[in-house]
Simulated scan of single mutants.
Amino acid sequence: MRKLGLLFLGICSQIVFAQANRFVYQVTMKPDSTDRNTIKTEIANLDIAAGNSIFYAENRLKRDSIMGRMRQTGNFNFDRTQMQNLRSNMDFIIEKDYKTGKKLYKARILRDQYAYEEDRPMDWKILPETVKIGDYKTQKAETQFGGRTWYAWFTSEVPFQDGPYKFSGLPGLIVKVEDSKGDYSFDLKESKKISEVASFDQRGSTIPLKRTAFEKQQEQFRKDPAAAVAVLSSSGGSFRIQMDPNQRKQMEDRQKEQIKKNNNPIELK
């Protein structure tokens, strides 16, 4: 009986280990510094399994799934209103490797997929203040990152030294983190077991580069999105064939409007 009991416990531990954990955060943002009354909210997930995690916007996953089905079926008829509603202010994916400590940031600029490894340390100062958030007893911590002062509340009751976005390195899961100006806030709303972490449809190869090079590329696009679209539409391939002048004009106008309304990024420097 003892052997059977140990075997049962071993099987149970394997099942638990094989499962993935999903932590669901509500993200509150003020992306337009000229209109602080406009507040955006989104749901984002932190999936953890086998010593790795991935952080992403739920809308990004939904859009990716729809686009994947369209490519598989060859049917590119879709509800434009639905796709517009699934646009995200967090159009990126962040992967963390617990063993190496590496954080990989992935994002697209138009059709190109880029990835860089975060090269800035996140040095935390743990503060004495404690507070109960939901079911968790949490402790406060502070760090300077990306040109902002951040306050986090973490719990040692959840044995993952991780959190939303690039935040990690505290002795427990980050339940809440916000910047001192109140521009961005991540609040844990739910946790659950899942069979596997989310996966995203990979189109083409990912271009690896340094963080500073990515930021330069991104800044060039922000300054002149029309030029980037023009280069893309004349670069050959199916994209050029499918995009007529009216479509290109609409895309340029949409990009300009999005950039105009998103002048308060989560990282200021």
Rank of each mutant, 00 (worst) to 15 (best):
M1C: 08
Q14S: 09
F23R: 14
Y25T: 06
T28L: 01
M29W: 04
N37R: 08
N37H: 09
T38P: 09
A44I: 03
N45A: 08
A49N: 14
S53V: 08
E58M: 08
N59P: 06
R63Q: 10
G68K: 12
M70V: 01
R71H: 05
T73D: 05
N75C: 07
M83R: 05
R87P: 10
F92E: 15
T100N: 09
K102G: 07
K103N: 06
L104C: 13
R108C: 07
I109A: 07
A115E: 11
L127D: 10
K140Y: 01
T143H: 01
G146N: 13
G147K: 07
P159A: 11
Q161F: 01
D162L: 08
P164Y: 00
P164C: 03
L170P: 03
P171Q: 01
L188C: 06
K192V: 11
K192L: 14
I194T: 12
E196F: 12
R203V: 06
I207A: 08
I207Y: 00
I207G: 09
R211N: 15
K216Q: 12
Q218G: 00
F221H: 15
G236Y: 02
F239N: 14
Q242F: 00
R248L: 13
Q250Y: 00
I259P: 07
N263Y: 01
N263P: 01
N263W: 02
P265S: 04
E267K: 01
K269P: 07
